[in-house]
Design a binder for these strands. Structure first.
Lengths: 150, 150
DNA sequence: GAAAAAAGTAACTATCGGAGTTACAATAAC
DNA sequence: GTTATTGTAACTCCGATAGTTACTTTTTTC
């Protein structure tokens, strides 16, 4: 596996669900994301547990957004996913008694810690309504271009 | 694989090499890092290509540091390793035409970009002499504790 | 109450990259 | 020429997400 794209995918699903009439089934969401229903259920489980969405079984069932987009930040979603590991880079721990390893890990760990802080700050600064507005901007720009090309 | 610990390990090796009399063989370095000689050679190859160390074959051969520690930053070493991927988190690219995906990826990518900037800034701010000094501080502190415990 | 539509979930496979290992070639010192 | 050493290719191992299959459970609808 190269990347963990769950955050990106779940956000994608939530924005689509906001524009969606009524409930969206896992199957529908899977098509929107280019994946399948089981992956959608698995990934959305954390959001359901956190109370941002609910799911209903049976005919007419599916996923419902329980919250205005403006009240969910990217950070909230990241936490609801279980705060998965951010970095591919890590510290060696083969010689935990070695003071050189400790000094190196303190230095690298400090830089990684600052990077993680910056990431969390960045995720807290944006809510899903911001992303939805950006989507709308992109839609309008695209239709302008289409008209002018016609 | 969980983490890429090459940066941490190479730094560990370089600090040890600075305190080492003459050349250090891959075998010796492997023991210091808790790994084996082939992994050491593979990982150090980038540093050799970048000119920070050289390696000599044959009896009496091994690795030599070519540069004062103060002239190498953590960032330099990261680049010499080939600037490996920093994040385990990534963007979805299953629906590249989808404007929702684009908006989501712009938002998440922006946060990741700021985090990467913070990481690089942190890596540039520390050179290997800083790490070596921290190692010496740790050594002194430890021997004080040992004396006072005796 | 039977059929159908949906979620929930377990279990398995695919994939990807670092790490570990083995094997062997190339080189240099003595 | 023997030995110590690097250089490298080729393979296995591991861990995590992602994909897939199969089955159970729940709920609606007829």
């Amino acid at each position: 596996m190269r990347h963990d794209s769950r955050l990106s995918r779940v956000l994608h699903a939530l924005i689509h669900m906001d524009g969606h009439e009524g409930r969206a089934t896992s199957e529908t969401i899977g098509h929107m994301l280019g994946t399948n229903a089981v992956v959608v259920r698995r990934t959305m489980a954390g959001l359901r547990d956190a109370g941002y969405v609910c799911s209903d079984k049976g005919p007419g069932g599916g996923w419902t957004l329980l919250c205005p987009l403006a009240e969910i930040t990217l950070f909230d979603v990241y936490i609801a996913l279980g705060a998965p590991p951010v970095f591919a880079l890590g510290l060696a721990d083969d010689q935990p008694e070695c003071l050189v390893e400790q000094a190196v890990n303190a230095a690298v760990g400090d830089a990684l810690g600052k990077a993680a802080d910056a990431l969390m700050t960045g995720l807290k600064a944006v809510n899903l309504a911001d992303v939805a507005h950006d989507f709308e901007r992109r839609s309008k720009r695209l239709s302008r271009h289409r008209r002018s090309a016609a």
